[in-house]
């Protein structure tokens, strides 16, 4: 007897129907469409209020050494926070570590000065890079520009791994280039 495609279709259809019914009544059920990641903006960055920016920076870092103040050591985020170019540059000046989520090739063509390459779609070899980064450290992830989501995905991944002070630099490499901020190859 040959395999009946119609029967296969019916088996799968019935299974799918059962799955939706079960999911509907299951208290641990999932939403049909996974919710898009909603970015939480770093307040000052969203408001584009430079005065507030500098206040926050001063609060976060002792201005001279660029190191974390004692109070700040205990503060971590609920989730990665999105920031824009101004705030990103301020963090850059404070020697905060930037992480490039783009591919290795793009990283090689040029990246933010001092940035570390951790391609989101890359191998797990970067684990060794991560091992050298303290979980208390502030990190900024970025990718190509506004449209890319690698920085967000990587930010979430790092956050899951226990890095609780992750900023996602919205605007990324393109904004950085536009502003002629320091880059290197």
């Amino acid at each position: 007897m040959r395999v009946s495609l119609i029967r296969i279709f019916w088996i799968i259809l019935v299974s799918i129907l059962i799955s939706f019914v079960y999911n509907h009544f299951n208290p641990n059920g999932l939403n049909l469409i996974r919710e898009e990641r909603v970015l939480i903006w770093e307040d000052s960055s969203a408001l584009d209020n430079s005065e507030k920016d500098s206040l926050l920076i001063e609060k976060n870092f002792s201005s001279n050494t660029g190191e974390l103040t004692h109070n700040e050591m205990n503060q971590s985020f609920d989730q990665p926070k999105a920031i824009k170019i101004d705030f990103a540059y301020k963090l850059f000046k404070q020697n905060v570590k930037f992480i490039d989520a783009r591919s290795v090739e793009e990283f090689a063509e040029g990246h933010i000065k001092g940035a570390v390459s951790i391609p989101f779609y890359g191998s797990e070899e970067y684990q060794s890079v991560l091992n050298q980064i303290s979980k208390d450290e502030y990190l900024v992830t970025y990718c190509d520009g506004d449209d890319c989501d690698l920085s967000i995905l990587l930010g979430d991944e790092l956050f899951q791994k226990g890095y609780k002070r992750v900023y996602v630099f919205y605007g990324g490499w393109q904004d950085w280039l536009k502003n002629n901020y320091p880059v290197e190859k």
């Binding site: 088996i11 019935v14 299974s15 999932l30 049909l32 469409i33």
Partner: peptide, 22 residues
């Protein structure tokens, strides 16, 4: 990292039941 985020839940809901029934 093969399936778009929006489609993840649909797969996670239906796939196991197809496995179970089959």
């Amino acid at each position: 990292k093969l399936i778009p985020a929006a489609a993840l839940n649909i797969c996670a809901i239906t796939l196991p039941w197809i496995e179970l029934v089959a």
